[in-house]
């Protein structure tokens, strides 16, 4: 719009030299930019929770003696199964790998079944039927000072790593 240029009159200048003016402008704009960026970072920091009020991922499953081979003990709240095997004890996540429903143990069929879409798993977590894409993950099992089994649903371990008390 060069034809409009004249409408705005000549450029308005102040008494300062351009160098000085630039310097002050730059300080001002620079400081404001730093504030903008820094407040963004500080805001992100502010929004990051520093403490969590979430239930612990570990729970005490009981004495190892309670898990003879074939015993399956589900824990609804922590969404896990603790299963006694011939060579030890292991824990399975009860969260279906399909869409996250909580699976149930069918004692009459010795299988784990998902009520939502009919996925089925064997006692080692392998998919035997249905839409589930992956086997149920194995969870970390350890022993506390009193000798009780402690399951950590937050730690997934390699399949087949049976815990021997």
């Amino acid at each position: 719009m060069p034809e409009l240029e004249g409408m705005f009159g000549p450029e308005v200048e102040e008494e300062e030299t351009p160098g000085r003016r630039d310097f002050f402008t730059q300080i001002g704009v620079g400081a404001c930019a730093v504030v903008a960026v820094a407040s963004g970072i500080v805001t992100l920091d502010y929004l990051e929770p520093k403490v969590l009020f979430e239930p612990s991922t570990t729970y005490v499953a009981g004495s190892p003696l309670d898990f003879a081979p074939g015993v399956v003990v589900p824990n609804q709240e922590k969404k896990a199964f603790v299963i006694g095997a011939a060579n030890g004890i292991y824990a399975l996540s009860a969260v279906c790998t399909h869409l996250g429903c909580i699976t149930r143990y069918k004692s009459d069929e010795s299988a784990i079944a998902c009520p939502c879409h009919g996925s089925r798993f064997d006692l080692e977590g392998n998919v035997t039927h249905g839409p589930a894409p992956r086997p149920l993950p194995w969870l970390d099992v350890s022993q506390d000072a009193n000798g009780n089994l402690v399951v950590d649903t937050g730690i997934v371990i390699a399949r087949g790593k049976v815990f021997r008390p």
């Binding site: 009159g9 308005v12 200048e13």
Partner: peptide, 17 residues
């Protein structure tokens, strides 16, 4: 660029857009 601010006093709409 050291000219002082020039205040345009005019009723001309083109000068006072």
């Amino acid at each position: 660029m050291t000219t002082p601010i020039e205040i345009i006093e005019s009723d001309d709409p083109l000068a006072n857009p």
